[in-house]
């Protein structure tokens, strides 16, 4: 595990370097690469202030030092579009996205795993075939179409849920009411994200379990007279889980792209939406900040998956997850 941790630190460093060097190595001066359109609105004084603050006219080495020390203090630059420091903007958006991701990830993983186990256990029988057809259909609908459909159905035709935003504006809710309001707003985006992820999770679990199902230890478990459910979950599903979680961790990056369009569709005030706005308005500091935060999030999720895996599957304490995938 110590080795894996080293990998993560290395990856993190590389991301920081990229984030620092890419804009600076672009043709033209650094300040226009970093601030772009916003420069036009800037007074010469602010420009000079920025030059001075981030040492943009200094040699690269010195700039990097400054960059790191700023980063350490959470200073990611200043957003002229939002008229606030980038760090602050990001911190405002992050909880929304995180709760969206956490909830959809949790539910889609749980549902996908249980459904996958049950289908694989009845391989080739009615339940399995019906599940496969359903999943294929679901998988065939592009995520944004799904989002829009849900929006239309449950937002317009049957207006059970709010259709945009993360909370009702100008309402002075307290405690549980506030939570309820949040959840109502969360429901449709989270459902969309869950449905987007479900087919993959289902297929992963199903195929992983199909491989495990034929393993001798399943026969052993059955042969000692265990109840079928015990065999299915305690012995089979548990052993089949590691590759699934690894793949889930690896696909977090993809999840963030889904988050992007889901947040846009539902005007959900998270990172995706922020990123979208920043892109539209060429707000480079925010864009860079978003990218940095997202990649760090992806790394963290991967780390989490790794840790979880090691808890579940003792083989991984020595083996690499990927080796296990190859073995399966």
């Amino acid at each position: 595990m110590r080795k894996r941790l080293g990998d993560y630190i290395l990856a993190f460093l590389i991301i920081i370097m990229l984030n620092f060097f890419l804009p600076r190595l672009m043709p033209g001066d650094a300040i226009s690469a970093l601030y772009g359109d916003a420069l036009m609105e800037m007074s010469p004084q602010t420009e000079a202030y920025l030059l001075e603050r981030y040492g943009l006219d200094k040699p690269l080495g010195e700039q990097f030092g400054l960059y790191i020390s700023n980063l350490a203090q959470g200073d990611l630059g200043y957003s002229y579009y939002f008229r606030a420091p980038v760090g602050q903007v990001l911190v405002g958006a992050l909880p929304w996205t995180l709760s969206l991701i956490a909830i959809s990830l949790l539910i889609s993983a749980l549902a996908g795993i249980i459904w996958g186990v049950e289908a694989a256990w009845r391989r080739g029988r009615k339940f399995d075939r019906a599940s496969l057809v359903t999943i294929m259909l679901l998988n065939g609908v592009p995520g944004f179409v799904l989002g829009i459909l849900l929006l239309l159905i449950f937002g317009f035709y049957m207006p059970w849920f709010p259709i945009s935003g993360g909370a009702s504006p100008y309402m002075d809710y307290s405690g549980w009411e506030q939570l309820w309001d949040y959840l109502q707003h969360l429901f449709l985006p989270a459902l969309t994200l869950t449905l987007v992820q479900l087919p993959r999770n289902f297929m992963l679990m199903r195929s992983s379990l199909l491989a495990v199902k034929e393993k001798p230890y399943i026969y052993t478990a059955r042969n000692k007279g265990l109840r079928d459910r015990m065999v299915r979950y305690r012995h089979a599903a548990r052993s089949a889980l590691a590759p699934v979680i690894t793949r889930l961790g690896m696909s977090i990056g993809l999840l963030f792209t889904s988050v992007l369009f889901v947040e846009i569709i539902f005007a959900y005030p998270g990172l995706g939406n922020l990123f979208y706005l920043a892109l539209q308005h060429h707000d480079y500091p925010t864009i860079h900040g978003c990218l940095l935060l997202i990649t760090v999030c992806v790394l963290l999720f991967n780390l989490l998956a790794d840790l979880l895996n090691q808890k579940i599957d003792p083989r991984l304490r020595e083996l690499d997850a990927r080796q296990l995938l190859e073995r399966a």
Partner: peptide, 8 residues
């Protein structure tokens, strides 16, 4: 092959 469940 694997006669015992690897995760227990």
């Amino acid at each position: 092959g694997e006669m015992l469940t690897p995760t227990l």
